[in-house]
Write a protein that binds this DNA or RNA. Sequence first.
DNA 1: TAATAGAGAATTTTT
DNA 2: TTCTCTATTA
Length: 875
Amino acid sequence: MSSYDDSDAFEAAASSSLAARAMSARTSSGLTGGPQPYLDGLNPAQLEAVHQLDGPVLMLAGAGTGKTRALTARIAHLLSTGHARPNEILAVTFTNKAAREMKNRVGHLLGQPAEGMPWLGTFHAICVKLLRRHAELAGLKSNFTILDTDDQNRLLKQLIIAAEIDDKRWPARALGSIIDGWKNRALTPDKVPTADHGAFNHRGVELYAQYQTRLTELNACDFGDLLLHVIRIFQENEDLLAQYQRWFRYILVDEYQDTNVAQYLWLRLLAAGHKNICCVGDDDQSIYGWRGAEVGNILRFEKDFPGAKVVRLEQNYRSTGHILAAASGVIEGNKGRLGKTLWTAGEDGEKVRLIGHWDGDEEARWVGEEIEDMQAARGRYKYRVNVRSVSPQQEAERLSKGGAVSKHREGDIHQTTLAREQVFSDAGKDNLPLPQGFELDEVAILVRASHQMRAFEDRFLTIGLPYRVIGGPRFYERMEIRDAMAYFRMVVSPDDDLAFERIVNTPKRGLGDKAQQTIQRMARSNGVSLLEGARLCVETQAIGGKGGKELRVLVDGLARWRQMITGPLRQVGPTDDLIEEDGAIKGVSHVELAEIILDESGYTAHWQNDKTPEAPGRLENLKELVKALESFENLQGFLEHVSLIMDNESDDQDPKVTLMTLHAAKGLEFPAIFLPGWEDGLFPSQRSMDESGITGLEEERRLAYVGITRAEEVCTISFAGNRRVYGQWQSQMPSRFIDELPEAHVEVLTPPGLYGHQGGMSASASPVEQTMAGSNLHERAARADVYNSPGWRRLQANQGQRGLRQPSEAKTMTIDAEAVSAFSIGDRVFHQKFGYGEVMHVEGDKLAIEFDKAGSKHVVGRFLVAAGDSGDVPF
DNA sequence: TAATAGAGAATTTTT
DNA sequence: TTCTCTATTA
């Protein structure tokens, strides 16, 4: 009937070698005994999670407890015991990286590449695969395009303008995130609850419906649709769903705490039959609530799947005792946790270090120096002391991966273990300080918001400390790459109107608003694509002059490039050198074609002529793009791949300090971690608390937990008393999370400059500090130095006012959107730019102010100060 | 139509 | 402060 039977047969064949191997493992070893090397080194909890194959399982895996190991071992176990063939396992992750890693590790465990696991991938990748097969059931063609946020916003903007809404006040981006929110909750336009109908000036639902219609017309869908279409297809086609329920005999889900409602429904549909679903996650690491993740999914698991087996992985192999205890102390402030007690068999290690600084630049300067000291110390020891508890398997794994650890250890594991013990006993005997050497690779700085990176980048550039930034604008999101890809898209699918709009006047062809409107009209009145409309405009001379000429060149060019893709054709154009003497077109590889497109369209020249400092980099990126094409069969394949794989793995091997956001750090680990900027308002982020109240604060706290638990050996938390926020100096208060750190596991460092900074890791407590017994941590850190100033004290005295400080208060206070604003109607306020005014209206953190001089404005509360409040400039 | 000067805004971002 | 977007000017 439909084609999917065949393709699955094909996949089964493709994966048969793995299956055969797995099956032969089974016959040779039997189900009970025999070698099962993939179980080596697993602890009892992990073994339990591996062996409990049937029925629902929730694997609660704390940070650093070896969840990926357990998960991959589980897959290996499923395969080698013959419970499932590779193509019968559905294993979903959130990132391509996680999927890749899982694939590699399963392959490693089974001693053969796991190519035969067609259903191991991200939610989105798996949905694309399903949707391409059954596109017609969702009203799409199987070659539908996937829009990214950029395309999405362009489209929405058009709809907003068409609906005669002021897109200034109601920006497309805002509508986009509203719609994404609905899609995350699996709400189609007809299902949006009445409570949400006020969204986007009461036009949100209407525009959402229009947007969906447009997408179907364009044969396109956005990321959210990938899930929703599949859900709808399953709901409307019972037999098809049943088919897949049988096929996917075992389901595994990674990072379950990050699933949104749509993903949850999707999983529930597929697992409804056999209920062989194993979800792995950690409610304490749920940090994507703002993007639709529902912690509730993991909290509710046992109710959703009655009889679910819950396995807790609590033995931590990553961090030292002090670090674990500090992290645990912080996360205890959250309510409604499933609860886990992390423990380690390793050493206590060094306490979490806490230090305050005068300002952000000072903080960056200090961190830079610390890192340099760490490198200097590194040279003094042949082997770095490893105070963590590392399982033998983990160690072997690392050595085989050629990872950071193996670089420091020559010889086999036994030798390194001996060497490590030697250093330890020496340290004990002679009272030597613990070695604190780290390679640059082993150090990471984790910030709350990306703008915090700047101070560090500036500083590191100044002192010549190599660093790398993780995150930020990704390769495939860069303007020049997206432009180039739009050209490729036009060549591959000439009907791609969004791509056409992007490139029609890039580079500048003298085709401005007016000309483009003419094209739009022409296309619409003839019911054809924009490209076809443009061709008509050229033919009918609807667009004349310079623009018309340029447009003709573009239209002809696109046609010519398209012919090169589809095969030899007798046509003579500017690419004469590609024409054989008999008139046939020489074979052009897709890589060459890409170059031709970029050159002949004038796009390369456009950047060559650009004299801005970015231009050379952009040309470089274009070169890289063309190079990336080499590993694909054709342009189509490449575009398909890129629409889902947006990450860019840099193959940069030089040791560098890593700089990234806390969000980006989830799942990673580093021997030494710096956590700067622990100041109320910055971390926890004011906005998060304003928008989501106690929920937001708890998510911030989980972020703190994630940050601390990234550290293996040394974790340094810092804050600054002053920070420049958007060019204005602001005094900052230490984060409430600092007060939540258990004192027994924290060492307050003496700030540099005063009390003799030794350049070492742990200067002893200052006299001032020692007299401060009983005072809380940030006071101790602060008073040890410059914070013991009149201005600082005034700030401390003031802090009760805004209810920002007391942790007990933080935990109990119920913050709702209205109450959280420090201002209420009628308050006199001061704004840096607009001067004095009166609060007229409060909506969450946004306030309408009638300014005395500047008139009425909408302002975010953060930019306001209560008039007469002198707390804004304490120094 | 293209360049440019001011206004206005300003987390986190797996796909 | 720094970026983006829009209204103005050439």
